[in-house]
Design a protein around this nucleic acid. Structure first.
Lengths: 345, 345
DNA sequence: TTGAAAGCGCTAACAT
DNA sequence: ATGTTAGCGCTTTCAA
């Protein structure tokens, strides 16, 4: 038994097969201009020596690493986790490895990671900036040369060329949800979402307002509560909100944490969902699906986001036509048990 | 404005600074044996040219890539996502990049990814095998030379040397939970968990049985329901379970999906939690915390798992002493509202 | 079709 | 302290 198996280099294989390193390289890669005999001998030798080509070395020549980076604020956030998962799956199919980094929405860290990715010569990257205005980082991005696909953000492109991006139609989603609640008779509706520093929040707010505008009802009833995505904070905030004189009769809440905060606040105040308070979840999390009563939710496919992003990137990497460079994914309203007409007070 | 900025190589810097490449390398790295003047000039030149060292090229010499792999079945699974997140955070602090791959518990894919990681010459890896018996893969692992840390699995080591590993004390957790229920008066308790192919399930079952054994009560009351982690299946299974003549008066359920299935089954059957059925969640998910009534849960820190794993790996990478090679993390029982004495029938 | 040889950008050993 | 040089393992001309 050999002690260290993986030392085998291409020269070893060449020697074992009785051919030149060039032939080994050709035999193992393209297979072009290789006689059957050489191909066979090389394969046998490689097998015997358990030869594993060194990608690092290859990279130096080919200027490609077979790796792409993925930059998100937090892979543990369910809203990102599935995107990352799906993107990795697609990329792996083509032999690409994915390196991930969490930025915690820290612009400095984002810049650092972009630099790190470039230093590592990653072939491309998927990125979801923590804000749309980390100008310097994106300028850096642009100078990298490696293709970039933006995940659901409005990052200003270079000149008139927008970045390739996968976008989710949060605006239409929010509009649909709000319209639905208004249709049920609600006039005071609260939107609980993280701040408008990023596209999803901005779009939701726009859709929310649009629904009020087009219904021609008192826009004062559109209660927009910006907040961080912390459950405790959300709960405190929600408590305050529900204690108001003219409290909202419906709530649209983002994600798991904020939704949870809102639900707990309602419970603490003795409000029953949906009788006293209608609730719509933004993002169809396990919690929404499984809660009693089941929570009506805005759903979009995170897997599709990840897949589409990977696809867009692959397109660039292969340089196959420009194709289309942006994807807009739909948002659906999944009707469940958490919305009814407002209590008649 | 230069069009392509990043072409600058170490030779360019050397030329610009009027020194040799060797000096540039020294100046930029160790800083040892470098005069102040050279250091200054090199720094200036590097800055001016926006020089970014090519890690690929460096790797070829140093035989280290500054990257570690992370192999889990699914990064989108909340049980893994936080581990990955925490590990990445710790590794990044030391300048390491993390590449992730999802194996979907497919042994072939696991082997393929291990091979890919080795080909890429990753410095080390964190791995949570989909079963403890993918022998061939782990043999491969062993021959790699790169340090490996196992995540909460019992992978047989080489000879008498166990793999470095971060383990969670699921056994003690399950024992505590079961003992607690028995103490409340329960005599028929169901454990709903995925199969025993992996350490966590096995350990839980062991702890569950141990609690019954030490309480000296009828072991027939220990109902072990192995199942896949699918909500529908869990629900069907739970329905069957709760319809039995001598139905369990308490349930211990893993994760979000199975827990949700059990809760829905109970609801469908008109059983009230906790009056008719006590429930303990295994894993303190959002659902458990937010459900009404709030579900008593077994909790362990996924972040600690990730951090500890990263730490163990770093230890190996630095070759600093053997230190300890295994960490056993505690599981706590978080008391909430879902457990009371069984109904007196 | 094959072999020989020139690098890819960097570090490290060796000279100076 | 600094410059020179030999590779790291591979791909890819260029000859033969």
């Amino acid at each position: 038994m050999a002690e260290i198996v993986s030392k085998a280099t291409i020269r070893d294989v060449a020697r074992a097969a009785g051919v030149s390193v060039g032939s080994v390289s050709r035999a193992l890669n393209g297979g072009k201009n290789v006689s059957a005999r050489v191909a066979r001998d090389v394969a046998a030798a490689a097998e015997k020596l358990r030869y594993q080509p060194d990608f690092q070395a290859r990279s130096l020549r080919t200027r490609t690493t077979g790796m792409v980076g993925c930059l998100v604020s937090d892979v543990a956030n369910p809203l990102y986790a599935s995107i990352v998962q799906a993107a990795e799956a697609r990329l792996r199919e083509t032999g690409l490895l994915m390196v991930v980094a969490n930025t915690a929405n820290d612009p400095a860290r984002e810049r650092a990671m972009v630099a790190a990715f470039r230093s590592r010569r990653l072939d491309g990257m998927l990125v979801a900036p923590g804000s749309d205005e980390n100008d310097r980082a994106w300028r850096d991005l642009a100078t990298g040369g490696a293709p970039v696909v933006i995940l659901d953000r409005d990052v200003p492109g270079e000149g008139d060329r927008p970045w390739p991006a996968v976008l989710v139609d949060h605006r239409e989603g929010a509009r649909t949800a709000t319209r639905y609640l208004i249709g049920l008779g609600h006039r005071r509706i609260a939107l609980l979402t993280p701040g408008a520093r990023m596209r999803p929040g901005r779009e939701r707010i726009a859709g929310f307002k649009a629904a009020f505008a087009e219904a021609d009802i008192d826009p004062e009833g559109a209660l927009i509560c910006l907040q961080e995505s912390s459950m405790d904070f959300a709960q405190g905030d929600a408590l305050e909100l529900l204690r108001r004189d003219r409290r909202p009769t419906a709530i649209i809440a983002l994600g798991t944490r904020i939704l949870a905060g809102a639900l707990r606040a309602a419970r603490d105040l003795g409000h029953s969902v949906p009788r006293d308070l209608s609730v719509i979840a933004v993002g169809d999390t396990d919690l929404a699906a499984v809660h009693s009563p089941a929570i009506t939710a805005l759903r979009w496919s995170l897997e599709d986001v990840g897949r589409a992003a990977a696809e867009l990137l692959l397109q660039r990497l292969r340089g196959t036509g420009e194709g289309q460079s942006r994807a807009l994914l739909p948002v659906d309203l999944v009707l469940r048990e958490s919305c009814v007409p407002p209590p008649t007070t």
